[in-house]
Design a protein around this nucleic acid. Structure first.
Length: 703
DNA sequence: GTAGGGTTAG
């Protein structure tokens, strides 16, 4: 019966019968229960008042009074609930239990254990299954380990171990105290698990990284003939997402389809998340589109899936659709959006979102703060990122990592290491990612010994096992310092499977330091790993050119032509007054092409007296085009910089983003352009930032 | 009359 209907009946009784028999206790109980379930405080008070005037609120109606306590605590009115409880002349185990549940659900776990003691000592009531499961839950949610153990003893004494609710609460307690062995033990010894047990154990294992045990529980559940409900699948999709195991994810998805389980908003979010994290954006989009009733979370999940798969623009566009459907974004949504802006270096869009975030009071959330810092760093605005960091109310490991790696990518090694020391001083625990940033910083500063100290001692002291990324940083560190043989020896002597990135790091070092022999060996190795790797060919060709081995250059070009290997087209873009202008290397699409080319020619002429010599050897482009005179002046970053110089005020810094590594020629040209125009020019390439100012670059000519 | 499990950011 609906609340209104119940109330209608009550009103009817009120008018029909005299005030002595307003409505029966059964009615009152039914009505109060319904109101409690709905959390309807307003109507609840009315009914309470009716009960009082009809003298139904007398003390001998314990069940009815229990319902009142329940009503108020479910409406978040704990003080009122407590007053009703305290005035009872007769209370039973349910009165206690209801009040305890009230305190538990309103976040006062500690209060529950106090009530529990009073119940036993004052009223001499021995706990039943309701009380025990509530108290056990309070111990887990309040992290009250000691009390939890005492309750465990009581459970054994009471013989309620086999009660489903009690057993589940006990399992949650084990999970909370990270006693996964205890969980396994209970699973073995206690038969007859219901779906809730399976699901909470599944979640427990997942939260503690027991992935294989989680899978075991899932298969045991299926083997037991329990098909698994949407909660089970939400958990298991979460596992696939964490493992980034697309194959497993698809298997689970098939299983779910076969079981006939219908999508709900939780499930669709979890599946979207799984496909997103496993790198299959099409799967994520398909699931999202096949479920109609989305909420903030599921919208955020599809935005995140797009972000994770580098579909940054798509994420921002989808957000418009989300707003159009009147779904209100929360802090997670803003974090994803800001990170998408970071991916595009879309400062204008990022600033707009920043304003919205502050206006709505989302700025205090760590996730949002981190995303803002990321956005400003990736858009090249170091000072804005730094200011945000200093003003943050709460920080987490990600915040610190973000600042350290942000400074490192901008070539600010000293700053990065200062922040790292600061982090240690405030006893924030560094993690795997932290040390990647730290080792990068050491690389910029050429601090070899310090780098090795972090790798070999500090990391191990903290209990972190160095991984491929750290070792690659060390290769870069040695390579940058010109210790190429050491770098090679380090790679040969470290028992790890090196990837393309690591070898390319060494090859790049060989290139910069013109170590032709080692470079050739490394390049050959790289080409064995991937015979069509354009990046390797470019580096190899650059190296040949630098030592003037023109035959080598010609050979590589011929090879590329024969194999029809094409370089990814060079793209640069820059944001001017909220509009993004994109330039391709041999671009003539831009409406102002003629003026832009004229500007480039003028800039190059201006820097010639400063010693600029066009370097036709440093890039490997489409051969025919490259042979044309003046081709280099059409490089996309030069076009973008020229355009920005034309369109922005004379003091404004220029920000350009490009999809490839910046080439030698553009690098030396931009250094000089920054000098003659007295402008700061910040270029974000695939790997790092180059901040050109007064004739030099923040990368100190090593990238 | 009272008690248990779920989705989104790096």
């Amino acid at each position: 019966m609906s609340t209104r209907a119940l109330l209608h009946v009550s009103a009817f009784s009120l008018s029909q019968v005299n005030s002595q028999r307003l409505f029966s206790v059964e009615y009152a109980v039914k009505l109060l229960k319904k109101l409690a379930d709905d959390g309807n405080f307003k109507l609840g008070k009315v009914v309470h008042a009716l009960l009082v005037v009809s003298s139904h609120a007398s003390e001998d109606h314990t069940i009815q009074n229990n319902c009142l306590i329940n009503l108020y605590s479910r409406c978040g009115q704990l003080a009122v609930a407590r007053r009703v409880f305290d005035r009872l002349s007769q209370r039973n185990v349910a009165s206690w239990s209801i009040l305890m549940a009230g305190y538990l659900h309103n976040g006062y776990a500690w209060e529950v254990t106090k009530l529990f003691k009073d119940m036993i000592s004052v009223d001499k009531i021995f706990p039943n299954e309701y009380v025990l499961s509530t108290v056990l839950s309070s111990c887990s949610s309040g992290r009250l380990l000691h009390e939890g153990r005492q309750c465990h003893a009581l459970v054994l004494k009471s013989g309620l171990m086999f009660h489903q609710y009690v057993k589940n609460a006990l399992l949650s307690l084990y999970t909370m105290s990270s006693d996964m062995e205890g969980v396994l033990e209970t699973l073995k010894s206690v038969p007859g698990l219901d779906i809730i047990t399976y699901n909470s154990v599944l979640k427990g294992f997942l939260d503690h990284g027991y992935t294989s045990e989680a899978l075991d529980v899932f298969s045991r559940m299926l083997a037991d003939g329990s098909a698994g409900d949407s909660v089970s699948y939400v958990n298991i999709f979460g596992l696939c997402a964490r493992l980034k195991d697309l194959k497993l994810g698809k298997q689970v998805h098939c299983r779910m389809l076969k079981s006939g389980l219908q999508l709900d908003v939780f499930l669709s979010s979890a599946i979207v998340d799984m496909y997103g994290k496993c790198g299959e954006i099409s799967g994520a989009r398909y699931i999202f589109d096949s479920y109609p009733n989305h909420n903030v979370v599921s919208w955020t999940a599809i935005l995140a899936a797009n972000f994770q798969n580098e579909c940054f623009e798509e994420a921002l566009k989808l957000f418009l659709r989300m707003e159009f459907q009147d779904v209100v974004p929360n802090e997670y949504t803003f974090a994803v959006l800001l990170n998408s802006c970071a991916g595009l270096s879309a400062l204008g869009c990022g600033k707009t979102l920043h304003a919205r975030v502050e206006k709505r009071g989302h700025g205090a959330f760590v996730v949002v703060g981190n995303a803002l810092i990321n956005m400003y760093f990736r858009s090249g605005h170091i000072e804005a990122a730094r200011a945000l960091f200093s003003n943050m109310i709460s920080r987490d490991t990600v915040t610190w990592n973000m600042i350290i790696s942000g400074f490192s990518h901008h070539g600010l090694g000293e700053e990065a290491l200062d922040v790292f020391q600061h982090m240690l001083a405030v006893e924030e625990q560094p993690n795997y990612v932290t040390f990647v940033g730290v080792l990068l910083a050491c690389g910029h500063l050429g601090r070899i010994e310090e780098g090795f100290y972090y790798l070999q001692h500090l990391m191990r002291d903290i209990g972190l096992e160095p991984g491929l990324e750290h070792y690659t940083c060390v290769v870069g560190l040695l390579g940058k310092a010109g210790k190429l043989d050491e770098a090679e020896n380090f790679m040969r002597s470290t028992p790890i499977t090196w990837d393309v990135v690591a070898w390319r790091t060494l090859l790049n070092a060989c290139n910069v330091h013109r170590n032709y022999d080692l470079g050739k060996r490394v390049a050959e190795h790289l080409l064995q790993l991937n015979p069509n790797d354009v990046g390797t060919y470019i580096l190899l060709s650059n190296m040949h050119a630098k030592v003037k081995r023109w035959d080598g250059v010609a050979k590589i070009r011929k090879l590329l032509r024969e194999r029809n290997i094409k370089k990814e087209p060079g793209l640069s873009w820059t944001e001017i007054r909220n509009e993004t202008h994109v330039f391709v290397s041999d671009d003539t699409q831009h409406p102002e092409t003629a003026q832009i080319h004229e500007k480039v020619r003028k800039l190059l002429a201006d820097i010639k007296p400063l010693g600029y010599v066009p370097d036709t050897t440093s890039v490997l482009h489409d051969v025919e085009q490259e042979q044309q005179e003046g081709y280099l002046s059409y490089h996309s970053e030069k076009l973008a910089v020229a355009y920005a110089l034309m369109k922005t005020p004379s003091q404004a810094p220029i920000h350009v983003i490009k999809n490839l590594r910046i080439c030698d020629d553009c690098h030396s040209a931009l250094k000089l352009i920054s000098k003659v125009t007295m402008r700061m020019i910040v270029v974000r390439d695939v790997n790092r930032f180059h901040s050109f100012q007064d004739g030099s670059c923040s990368c100190a000519d090593y990238w």
